[in-house]
């Protein structure tokens, strides 16, 4: 009975054990004096510090500041990415006009233009949002484009046979048909937007999780840095999981 139960939940059991082991090892190497806690802190200290930061409101404040930039950037990227993607997906000429820029954007590390954005927008939220926006834009645009372009031909033919006009086909076949792949693009965009926010915050901000890491790094306060790092990792996992869930829901619209 126990073995049956274990076999069914083996992944969960082993995964949890592995995370616990990492925590225990982390604590153990410091307690045993193998590594100076100055470098890696300890799980105990990090949790305590997390409690302190939560109580005095700085943790919530930083999370909210980062989320604020994140939401703005993602909304912008979704609007522009989906808009341009639909345009380019429906009009081949628009795709041709946009393509060189998208290719450039695809291969250029956006962050190389960071100093340029600082020159234009100054340090702070506008630059952070701009960087995160550019980070998130590409996958959203690319997925929307391919979603619209690869609309099921049989569906289009079927719609044609019922006398549908191009606008009908666009609104009732192409647009709904590409929702799952657009959502997949959004999921990729979420991860990249978060990266963009945090990285830009490392360089210049007055609040936010990235700022907190950079600030405490200058003071060599490892424990306080670890709090923000763990929260960011957690945030990345939670946000991506949410979009994965949405992706699964919308994917069932498609006939396999």
């Amino acid at each position: 009975m126990m073995t049956e139960l274990y076999r069914r939940h083996e992944a969960l059991v082993l995964g949890t054990l592995s995370l616990l082991t990492i925590g225990i090892l982390w604590q153990a190497v410091v307690s045993a004096g193998l590594i100076n806690p100055f470098f890696i802190s300890t799980p105990g200290a990090v949790f305590k510090e997390m409690g302190v930061q939560f109580a005095d409101g700085t943790l919530v404040e930083n999370i909210l500041a980062s989320l604020h930039s994140f939401v703005l950037a993602l909304a912008l990227a979704a609007g522009v990415g989906i808009g341009l993607g639909v345009l380019a997906g429906w009009f081949p000429d628009a795709e041709a006009a946009l393509e060189p820029f998208i290719w450039f954007k695809y291969s250029a590390p956006t962050i190389a233009f960071y100093p340029l954005f600082v020159a234009w927008l100054g340090y702070g939220t506008p630059t952070i949002v701009a960087i995160a926006f550019l980070f998130a834009l590409t996958p959203i645009y690319a997925n929307t484009l391919s979603g619209i372009k690869n609309v099921d031909r049989d569906l289009v033919r079927a719609a044609h046979s019922f006398g549908a006009r191009p606008l009908d086909i666009f609104l009732r076949v192409a647009l709904p048909g590409s929702v799952p792949i657009v959502v997949a693009g959004l999921r990729l965009g979420v991860g990249r937007a978060l990266t963009g926010v945090v990285v830009a915050e490392l360089f210049g901000a007055s609040a936010g999780l990235g700022y907190s890491i950079a600030y405490h790094a200058q003071l060599l306060q490892t424990t306080k840095m670890m709090v923000s790092i763990l929260v960011i990792i957690l945030l990345g996992v939670v946000l991506t999981q949410m979009l994965s869930w949405l992706e699964k829901k919308t994917d069932s619209w498609r006939v396999p």
């Binding site: 992944a11 490392l202 790092i229």
Partner: peptide, 21 residues
């Protein structure tokens, strides 16, 4: 099963936040 959770977390998360450390 053992390595998947930490691995996926680090794959998804922006590893660049580890830069200051």
């Amino acid at each position: 099963y053992i390595l998947d959770p930490p691995l996926m977390a680090l794959y998804i998360a922006p590893t660049l936040v580890l830069l200051p450390i």
